[in-house]
Structure formats: structure tokens, C-alpha cells
């Protein structure tokens, strides 16, 4: 007798595929935001499944700060070939060169904040009316109340008090001219779900997720990689350490963790006993108490 129960990963996958198909059906010109991080990897992995045997009917968009880990970019190009997707790259450098944004100065300078402008410009240039993102509700408290179809006004801004109620899985993508949507197909996944899925599907991921030798230094409790983009302050001594990354972001604001986890099973073990959230390694969330909420309102994801 067949067991008519889906395990939790298969049920989450089915929900995600449903949401991605709804986005493709309800919007005229959707895209999928691809950062090279594990969340956007699993999301695009399921986008491929959603339309198989056809190809993914929308492009993937990467906002490149120019300060990415080189491993991420190499991985990205390889992965696009593998899943047969079209990639559009928005360069933060272009936004700086055209005077749209000003590069931050000082020792904590990061291009992370500038991404928002490049992202909105890229969406506008290609007339995208919906952008799928790999944000999860368990990541951060401002995201716990995010909708699967999140309405943005004509400035790309998010108004937390004016979000549409979402019932059952009847998603409402109606909008006026000039407005657009952010769509979050993996809203209901946790960090652990994502890792278990990567394992069960055998999905390739960037090498920086696994432990490796790297020259790092500590600043404000964060372990940062040495690079041309981060000037060292007095007293900061880089050392070779065994580290890995729990999230993949800009080199200037993504911290590593000391870890020997060199394969998926070891990562799953590490995540299951971990006592800090993965965003704990991100300086961009630490700037103020409601940092994520402010950035969301401005149009970041």
C-alpha cells in the first residue's frame, strides 16, 4: 500500500513550486533574484523543477557589488549553465560610475546599502513587475510577518502596515501601473530545512560554505576575510584560520565562523547545535535595532 504522506521537505517543495508557478502566471515580467547564497540556490533549483521539461520562463538577476567572494562568482556561472537559466547582472560599480550612488567612506565602508539602488535600477531597466527572493520568515523578526506576495509601491517601498492579508494559498498579485511585487517562495523554510534539502537533492553549493583555510581578522566580534576592499585598522592582525561562511554576502560585511565542517552532514550537525542565528554573522543587520525593517522599507528585498 502506498503511503499518501509527503515528508516535510517534499511538502515545502510542493508549496514553493506552487508559489513560483503563481508568480509566473500572475505577473507579466517576473524575475528571480540570485545572490549565489544557499537560499537563492534552492529557490532556483525548484524553479527549474516547476516548469520542467520547459526551461525557467524568466531570467535570474544577480546584483554584483563588485566585492563578492571570487568563489561565489565562479560558482554562479557554472550553476547557470547547469540549470540552463538566463542571467542578468546588475553592477553596483555602474551605479557608482553614473553618480546614482556614492561609495561609503571609512573603515566600515560597505557596498551592501548601495545594492538597493542598483537592484531597483535593474528592475526598472528591464521592466520587471515581480522579483522572487529567497528570504525566509525564520531569518529575522521583520521577515516573520512578510507575505509570500509582498506589495511594493511605485518607489519599491514596503509599508508594513499596508500589506494584504494572505489566506489559504490564494495569492493576490493585482497591482496598479508602476507598482511591483516581491515574491518569497521559500517563506516557510528554516535554515535547517534548506540544508536538509541541499543534502537530499545533492545540490552543488559555493565552496566557501565548507571549512577552508583563510586569512582572517576580528573586528567588532566578527571574523572578516582580508581583502583589497577592507582596509585594516591599527592593531588588526590577520591570521590563517579554519573557517566557513553561514551566509554568502558582500565580503565587507559577511563574517565567517570558526568551523571544521567540511561536508553537508557536518554542516547539518553544526546548524542543529548552533546557538546563534545565521544573520548573527551579518554586520548589516547590526547597525540598528530595526536595521532589517528599515532596509526592507527602502526596497532591499
Amino acid at each position: 500500500m502506498i503511503n499518501y504522506n509527503l515528508n516535510h521537505l517534499k511538502e515545502l517543495e510542493s508549496e514553493t513550486i506552487y508559489i513560483i508557478r503563481e508568480a509566473a502566471a500572475q505577473f507579466e515580467n517576473p524575475c528571480l533574484l540570485f545572490s549565489g547564497g544557499k537560499d537563492s540556490i534552492v529557490m532556483s533549483w525548484m524553479a527549474r523543477k516547476a516548469f520542467y521539461p520547459a526551461r525557467i520562463p524568466f531570467p535570474l538577476v544577480h546584483v554584483d557589488t563588485g566585492h563578492n567572494f571570487p568563489e561565489t562568482i565562479a560558482y554562479r556561472d557554472e550553476y547557470m549553465k547547469m540549470i540552463g537559466a538566463n542571467l542578468i547582472v546588475g553592477m553596483v560599480q555602474d551605479s557608482i560610475d553614473s553618480g546614482r550612488v556614492k561609495e561609503e567612506k571609512g573603515p566600515n565602508a560597505s557596498r551592501n546599502g548601495l545594492q538597493t539602488v542598483t537592484l531597483l535600477d535593474t528592475l526598472e531597466k528591464h521592466k520587471f513587475d515581480a522579483a522572487m527572493g529567497g528570504a525566509r520568515r525564520d531569518e529575522e523578526k521583520a521577515r516573520a510577518k512578510e507575505r509570500m506576495f509582498s506589495h511594493r509601491d511605485e518607489f519599491g517601498q514596503w509599508d508594513p502596515k499596508n500589506q494584504r492579508p494572505e489566506l489559504w494559498l490564494l495569492l493576490n498579485g493585482k497591482k496598479s501601473v508602476g507598482e511591483h511585487f516581491r515574491v518569497f517562495p521559500i517563506s516557510n523554510w528554516t535554515e535547517m530545512d534548506v540544508w536538509m534539502y541541499i543534502k537530499s537533492e545533492n545540490i552543488p553549493i559555493p565552496s566557501i560554505y565548507f571549512s577552508h583555510q583563510r586569512e582572517v581578522f576580528e573586528r567588532d566580534g566578527m571574523i572578516l576575510s582580508t581583502s583589497d576592499f577592507i582596509p585594516l585598522r591599527d592593531g588588526e592582525k590577520p591570521e590563517m584560520k579554519t573557517v566557513r561562511y553561514r551566509t554568502v554576502g558582500d565580503m565587507t560585511c559577511t563574517g565567517a565562523v570558526y568551523s571544521d565542517a567540511s561536508d553537508i552532514d557536518m554542516i547539518i550537525d553544526e546548524v542543529s547545535v548552533s546557538r546563534t542565528t545565521e544573520r548573527g554573522t551579518r554586520a548589516d543587520d547590526k547597525r540598528t535595532e530595526a536595521a532589517m525593517e528599515d532596509r526592507k522599507k527602502a526596497g532591499y528585498f
Partner: peptide, 10 residues
């Protein structure tokens, strides 16, 4: 609290 918040545990 304004709306529905989703929480996860296993």
C-alpha cells in the same frame, strides 16, 4: 501586534 507572525520549530 499588527498581524499574523509565523514561527518555526522542529
Amino acid at each position: 501586534t499588527i498581524d499574523v507572525a509565523y514561527r518555526y520549530f522542529a
